[in-house]
Design a binder for these strands. Structure first.
Lengths: 226, 226
DNA sequence: TAGCATACCGGACGTTCGTTAGGTTTTGAG
DNA sequence: CTCAAAACCTAACGAACGTCCGGTATGCTA
């Protein structure tokens, strides 16, 4: 029995534009990107709307032409981040053979999660920094989406546990928060200019190899789609 | 050659009181504790001074009788957290035999770090949440203290690397941020009422055992001082 | 070219923020 | 009991916050 696929359904409602090609860096997209960069660097409360507007080359009133409120900007950023992560994980799982072991699926998910984090950095960093006390309304919308992704990991780890994959001494209930928090925190220190994403992934997977019961091959080469 | 001991010297200047027994929950200590609890729950910017004061049963002006500014409160909280962590790690290292291996010292440090985190939770949580953009003046004072603790870990990991303890495939430069961020993040999800600190420590140490070259004994019993 | 939706702006609103001046109560030593 | 220091208060300051109103520029469609 394979893990749930796709990991999550997309949460972004399709834009109701009839035709068009999405002009490069439209006002709205630009504001969104600059806001994400600011939120990632300074946090939500420390980033003023006038500062966001200035970064986007716009006045603060203009922001309200594109977004209903500061909270809604935040909410959309986090949804983009979560969508990117689940899409990357899904893609990574799709290239696995059908008879992949739980361990192979977990390690593929780790690779996908890490890749998504560091190729959407402003958005995923905003998401990672926001564990505590989102402005209430945001958590109501974003909470269930996060829970959906958590459930995917819970199910995958449960399979591994049922298959007897874990070494005695590890508490399986702690693995999901341990793994996900470790991955997310790489956003705070990993610099792609000083080390490759492949090295990071290999180091993390090797480090986690302490949880597995069988020795297994720890450093397999992983294929990537073009 | 053993790792640096003590880990750090205390950064708290002794209170210049002449005698006294420090009445239980003095105004100042109370404000400090409530502020730490609030910062840990909601972050720095989201915690207003009037809210801090109210939690402490005091008016906001009174806070300024004990502290020069909101930033100074923050700064002191983080210093308390860092002092507690380095004290616990030092204590854990002191009970090791003199010929302890690098691996034993690292695992002892992990145990000490985790114990300090979860026995000073409001303070250490505030410290862990504050990776990004402290109010500038705070980072100037707190940055070097953090760097001192980071240096301790760097030196310890360097010893292990020199002793050839690490499995090929792991990038030693990534180990310190990987380990420390994993430990610090446990503050966000570990609930001491649902699992013991010993189980957490054992799971983490076992998980990290993937980095070691030799099989070694992964689950040793660790002594604790009375 | 006329019409219209979209994008943007100046300027203000009410609120909350960290902070402070100046006055009152509490406390403990002599 | 005296009296100074410590602890606490009320009330306000200017600044910055998120938000919004009314009006102007822009660019596509017909």
């Amino acid at each position: 029995m394979s893990a749930v696929l796709p990991v999550m359904k997309s949460t972004l409602v399709r834009k109701t534009k009839t035709r068009e090609v999405e002009r490069t860096s439209s006002g709205r997209e630009n504001i969104l990107h600059e806001a994400a960069t600011l939120f990632a660097a300074k946090g939500y409360a420390e980033s003023g709307l006038r500062e966001i507007a200035e970064m986007a080359g716009v006045r603060s009133a203009t922001v309200y032409h594109h977004f209903a409120s500061k909270e809604k900007i935040y909410e959309e950023i986090i949804r983009i981040a979560l969508d990117a992560i689940s899409a990357a994980v899904t893609a990574e799982l799709l290239v696995l053979p059908l008879d992949a072991t739980p361990r192979m699926r977990i390690e593929a998910s780790i690779a996908g999660h890490l890749r998504a984090l560091h190729t959407n950095k402003p958005f995923t960093s905003t998401n990672a920094h926001s564990r505590i006390s989102l402005p209430q309304g945001v958590n109501l919308v974003v909470g269930p989406i996060r829970e959906q992704y958590s459930d995917f990991w819970r199910a995958m780890l449960e399979e591994a546990k049922a298959a007897g994959s874990f070494k005695p001494g590890v508490d399986p209930k702690m693995l999901r928060p341990l793994i996900l928090s470790t991955l997310n925190r790489t956003l705070g220190w990993f610099d792609p200019r000083k080390g490759s994403l492949e090295t990071l992934t290999r180091t993390v997977v090797t480090m986690f190899s302490g949880i597995w019961h069988e020795p297994d091959m720890a450093t397999r080469v992983r294929k990537r789609r073009a």
